[in-house]
């Protein structure tokens, strides 16, 4: 990797607490970054407590999944994912009016190729108001890429970033109506709006180092993060929550139509009520 790359160590601890002993639980963690053009994974592992044998596979979307089941009685379940990743800066960005045209995006072959990423999903479906917003933005911009950037700006201006304002089940419409949300909601809104315009778009889950001027060796509290990618002749990524291109501070874990395709940890258990869950992400810039 080039001299301007960063080396990041990410530790992601998450899990559940129950009101009493749980007899059995089956889970899947999507918490492992994988190698791709923008990042190189030096080391990645997932550990589970109580101890369980883990099974790794790559799902339909290409995300690395760690599956495990626990059969010893337990009152808390903890999953810890650690990874060391080299990341590159944003690289060559598409100029505002460049990229595919609306006509090019409407070619039947293109529509068929990205069909799955043009359809609404439960969390990205729009209501009438949002559909009109999409139409208006599309009308104002001759180039899809420029329209996408404008969409990101609009959503960021309209929806206030308020941690805890929404949950994992919240959809785009609800977040829009309350004008509050987190990175997940902002990304769902952008993805939904872009698809309504006819621009193929996907939801990305990963990690973000909070500081552009990170000190080397300092462990800071990071975030489990989400952003978006859209296709205008090629795929391009953008972080609408922070209004920045995706660069050396971002680590990609998974891509899909929405959160439901890339949840960091989900599963089923049999036992008493789930009384709590905690997420803790620590990011350290190593180089």
């Amino acid at each position: 990797m080039s001299a301007s790359s960063w080396r990041l160590r990410v530790q992601h601890k998450t899990g559940f607490t129950y009101a009493g002993p749980v007899g059995a639980s089956y889970n899947e963690a999507r918490m492992s970054p994988r190698n791709e053009s923008h990042q190189a994974v030096l080391d990645a592992r997932v550990e589970v407590w109580p101890p369980a044998r883990t099974y790794r596979y790559e799902d339909y979307w290409g995300t690395v999944v760690t599956a495990f089941d626990v059969h010893a009685a337990h009152e808390t379940l903890q999953v810890t994912a650690s990874a060391t990743v080299e990341t590159l800066p944003a690289g060559d960005l598409i100029a505002g009016d460049a990229g595919a045209t609306w006509a090019e995006l409407a070619v039947p072959e293109t529509v068929d190729r990205w069909h799955e990423l043009l359809l609404p999903t439960p969390r990205t479906a729009l209501d009438e108001e949002l559909t009109e917003v999409a139409e208006r933005i599309r009308g104002e911009h001759p180039a899809p890429h420029a329209a996408a950037l404008a969409t990101c700006t609009l959503v960021r201006e309209e929806v206030e970033y308020v941690p805890g304002a929404t949950g994992v089940q919240t959809g785009a419409v609800q977040a829009w109506r309350q004008r509050k949300g987190v990175c997940q909601d902002i990304s769902h809104l952008v993805v939904g709006l872009l698809r309504a315009m006819g621009t193929p778009a996907r939801y990305v889950s990963g990690y973000l180092h909070p500081s552009p001027a990170a000190a080397i060796g300092e462990a800071v509290v990071g975030q489990s993060h989400a952003w978006v990618e859209w296709w205008v002749g090629r795929w391009t990524a953008f972080d609408p929550t922070n209004g920045i291109p995706v660069g050396e501070r971002h680590v990609v874990v998974g891509r899909g139509r929405e959160y439901g395709d890339v949840p960091p940890l989900k599963g089923v258990y049999s036992g008493p009520e789930n009384s709590g869950q905690g997420v803790e992400v620590t990011v350290t810039r190593l180089r």
């Binding site: 072959e109 068929d112 190729r113 069909h115 799955e116 359809l119």
Partner: peptide, 11 residues
């Protein structure tokens, strides 16, 4: 190869 549209499958 376009024998079956993606649409049919993914929907």
């Amino acid at each position: 190869d376009g024998v079956v549209p993606r649409r049919i499958v993914v929907t």
